[in-house]
Design a protein around this nucleic acid. Structure first.
Lengths: 211, 211
DNA sequence: CGAATATTCGACTAAATAATTCGAAATTAA
DNA sequence: TTAATTTCGAATTATTTAGTCGAATATTCG
């Protein structure tokens, strides 16, 4: 086992005097598993490690979850929700749609960069049989488009934009945003990143701004 | 497989028209393996991954190395040499022994922090049966003590220090330096790190400076 | 050229590791 | 005290992985 000692401290069997809610225990397991999965990915994370890190017997983990996949699913869902929340928070600080979008792209990229391992696991073929991943991805994508759409709509209300279909436009923007990600994952130079985002946002908004 | 695509690009069988030096190929394998080991540690790194990343068949790897351990040994040796070189370079920029030592500790800590995974692997019990690790560690430790000793000796020549046994003093300093590392691995706050190093250096030199 | 040598890799095996199950013991609720 | 809940050690099964073998392909050199 090569996990950080903080998580690994051994402990005696838990002695409690009131029952914990089953969901609370599940939550704890998911939180611990999140760290391990995000560091090592799905394959390289073992149930033994999750058990050790949660200070439980391996069989106890199976009392709460059917399988490793089920834990992974819960983790991915949590990860997606946290990212979503972080993104909504980030754009809330700006009024100008252009600034909002810039903040969105920046935060999104940094977050995905931090989760690079995780993200790899999701992209890779050997997990494509996990149907739930596609479901989560779809839900996440829809939210992304809806968020961008709401930014655009605000611009339209302002009279700042002229857009026939904010929905189609937002799909285009999200697609472009994803395209931007790939080269940025490789070289992580902060200045360069800022510049590229600026460029992208300028290009994207070029056709939309009222003149 | 969840490695970075840069490494993973598949490739046709290599067609060369001159033989490469065997050692050059070994060097390449070690370099590739270094990345994977340092990210996932000894256990979680597989020969298949090393083979894939070097664009060779697994059996070809065994043509160059006897075993996974042998590759790991080469990697650890390289890692130790690189660190050593980096440290010598770092102290060469300063004249004052105190500054030299400060630079030494700082660079050493940053380097080990970056290699945290790796370092874990070396610390962990499940690798203690690999005798070569102790050999490398010993060699590395000796170099460390010698380096600190040379710093102290320069201070003595300057007339800045009064030390009976620079050798014993350097052992003490290296030991203290290692003690400092442990709490710092946990919380990585740059300012705090600088402050602690300053403190340590001050304490260490307190008894040595000529008054 | 063509024989000798060096290098590559696919397919296989044995061993190790990891996921999952089971039943019994411990704990808590009632 | 009894029933339900929670825990885990030990066993089982499935998967992964280190390492082997032999044949095929490349390269060198006479």
């Amino acid at each position: 086992m090569e996990l950080c000692d903080i998580i690994l401290q051994p402990q005696n069997r838990n002695i409690r005097f009131t029952m914990l809610d089953k969901d609370e225990v599940k939550e704890t397991i998911v939180n611990v598993a999140r760290h391990i999965f995000s560091r090592f990915g799905f394959r390289k994370t073992t149930m033994d490690e999750i058990a050790l890190a949660t200070r439980k017997g391996k069989s106890s983990i199976y009392y709460y979850f059917e399988s490793k996949e089920e834990i992974f699913q819960a983790v991915v869902e949590k990860e997606a929700n946290l990212l979503k929340a972080e993104l909504h928070e980030a754009i809330s600080h700006f009024e100008d749609p252009r600034e909002k979008l810039k903040a969105y792209i920046l935060v999104r990229m940094r977050a995905l960069n931090k989760l690079a391992n995780f993200y790899d696991a999701l992209k890779n073929d050997y997990l494509s049989h996990l149907e739930f991943i596609n479901v989560i991805r779809k839900k996440y994508d829809d939210d992304e488009i809806a968020t961008v759409e709401s930014i655009l709509k605000r611009g339209i209300e302002n009279g700042e934009f002229v857009i026939d279909s904010p929905h189609l436009a937002s799909i285009a923007i999200v697609t472009a945003m994803k395209g931007l990600e790939i080269p940025i994952f490789v070289e992580v130079n902060e200045d360069e990143v800022e510049k590229r985002i600026d460029n992208l946002v300028n290009i994207l908004f070029y056709g939309l701004i009222k003149r």
